[in-house]
Write a protein that binds this DNA or RNA. Structure first.
Lengths: 190, 190
DNA sequence: TCCTCGGGGTGACAGATGTCATGGGTGGGG
DNA sequence: CCCCACCCATGACATCTGTCACCCCGAGGA
């Protein structure tokens, strides 16, 4: 519904034409190629494939297509990862609607469009300190599984799970796993 | 952005006019009164006041205004609470955009619009078994606070916090507080 | 070559968490 | 009046979590 609404909104602009719409991340590249789009608008939370991964794949497959990320959550870590994935613009959905068409025009002129406050936050916060394994364990702990379950799921010993969680808790400056999960989520590290 | 886009979309319909837009739950009633709206579209997650609470207040203050809830998450518990709050329709945002205008027209004719699958799920799942206090404690536990913190925040003894959490864990059929939080969230009990 | 970092592991230990039994108080319904 | 649900509390107990010290291995970088 939101996608259709935003597409309609963009289609009302004189100089913008919506040439394709898909509801899944893993259909982005085919749609972009078949439609010959100049700009791709991607959400981050999508079924099939994350908008971040889709952005990276799209950049690789069709380097000429500009990429605009439009997402609900303005997490600094998302911004960072979006930029690393080759995005040209990063918008949050609670920005005024006029910014959307504006961003499309500006990336077509070769500009990059980023909320300055968000950029500052991303720089202030520093990069993701978690190692891949720590991230795995933290993600597994996120939905409330016990150490033994996590150990089984990741083929680790229970003690190792405890060790990884302990370092993750310290790196996030949290006081237990739940808080660590919350903080890592807020920062976009999960 | 989403609100503006949906408003534009609705405004394109011949028989629908968008007479007001607000971004906060606690501004809904004033806007509805001043604009003389026939139908109010409410999201659940809003700053200021929940769409559910806003719906209840609106029903009380202006009983003639039809209420349509449009939300991201189709949690059965949300549906239940929406209906108890006096909503006339409940839509999820990943439904096709055409359903939005359709729902507006139908509630104006006095119909109630609910996704049948969601209605079945809401009935199958049963009502919220948590007592108000259990809900408070679970909510406080949700962001990773320790028992002692929760006890301080709610002016309870630590043992009482443990007891409430224990019953909440059993009622949600979870195995620890984190899982209980996840399940309660999924069901819309928080 | 040595040093560091990531991955994986063990054992010990304190403190947090979850369960249970048991008690008290209030207020509403039958 | 009694019963029940909810609220609040205590104490005991077992288990889970989080921390720390220490171990091994392989891959790089200086």
């Amino acid at each position: 519904m939101v996608r259709e609404a935003l597409a309609t909104l963009l289609g009302l602009e004189e100089d913008i034409e919506v040439v394709a719409q898909v509801g899944r991340g893993d259909e982005v590249i085919a749609a972009a190629r078949d439609s010959g789009a100049d700009v791709a608008l991607l959400d981050i939370e999508m079924p099939g494939m994350t908008g971040l991964d889709a952005a990276a794949a799209l950049r690789k497959a069709l380097p000429g297509v500009r990429i605009v990320i439009v997402t609900t959550f303005g997490r600094p870590g998302y911004l960072r990862r979006a930029m690393e994935s080759g995005a040209d613009a990063f918008l949050v959905k609670d920005a005024p609607a006029a910014q959307l068409a504006d961003a499309v025009r500006r990336v077509l002129r070769g500009e990059r469009v980023i909320d300055p406050a968000l950029a500052a936050a991303a720089l202030a916060e520093g990069a993701d300190p978690l190692t891949p394994r720590e991230r795995d364990v933290l993600r597994a702990a996120a939905d409330g599984r016990a150490n033994a379950d996590i150990a089984r799921a990741l083929h680790l010993s229970e003690g190792t799970v405890r060790n990884y969680l302990s370092t993750a808790i310290q790196k996030t400056a949290a006081r237990n796993r739940a808080e660590a999960v919350r903080i890592a989520r807020e920062r976009g590290w999960l």
